[in-house]
């Protein structure tokens, strides 16, 4: 299946939900949908275009919004579904009901960006330690790391 065919098929499947489509390189298709339509769109792509393999979810801190990219792979290249959510209210629907394998990536997204994934089956921290302070989300652009003061046990102050 060529990229153009893929885009046509996606247009037919998603209809009005598809905001934008692009084909920047060979075998790379980018589709943009609204966060509210995300679950329905992915379901349509899964059944209609055989996109069951979610490679990963990328979060990007893009100024006023968080861009969330769902990378899919199939036997003829890859499709990326893009959605943006405002920084003020970073809520995203969980897609685990459609693609169960997304759970670890959604947990990672919560850890790293502080995006709240609604209805996530397992909301615990994935990478950050249990005692990680509230409101620290490392991959946000305004977060910087300060090395804690080194204390040598039993050493001089």
């Amino acid at each position: 299946m060529t990229d153009a065919e893929k885009i046509d098929k996606a247009k037919a499947l998603l209809g009005g939900r598809l905001i934008e489509s692009a084909n920047p390189a060979l075998r790379r298709v980018f589709l943009t949908v609204a966060p509210a339509d995300l679950r329905a769109s992915l379901e349509a792509l899964k059944t209609g275009l055989d996109q069951w393999f979610l490679a990963t979810i990328t979060g990007v801190d893009a100024g006023d919004v968080y861009e969330v990219l769902y990378h899919f792979g199939d036997t003829a290249g890859s499709i990326t579904v893009r959605t943006s959510i405002p920084k003020a209210a970073p809520h995203l629907p969980s897609i685990c009901a459609v693609i169960p394998g997304a759970i670890l990536y959604e947990r990672e997204l919560q850890d790293m960006f502080g995006i709240v994934v609604d209805d996530i089956p397992d909301p615990r921290n994935l990478l950050m330690p249990d005692g990680w302070p509230e409101g620290n989300f490392p991959l946000r652009k305004d977060w910087t790391y300060e090395r804690p003061k080194e204390i040598i046990p039993g050493g001089k102050a």
């Binding site: 069951w52 393999f53 792979g73 199939d74 036997t75 290249g77 890859s78 693609i99 394998g101 997304a102």
Partner: peptide, 21 residues
């Protein structure tokens, strides 16, 4: 569960980036 590599291939899913992409 979106498995990759030999785990997926041992379950009969013939996916390999070298072939697909």
């Amino acid at each position: 569960l979106c498995t990759v590599g030999p785990v997926a291939r041992a379950s009969g899913i013939a996916r390999d980036v070298r072939k697909d992409d």
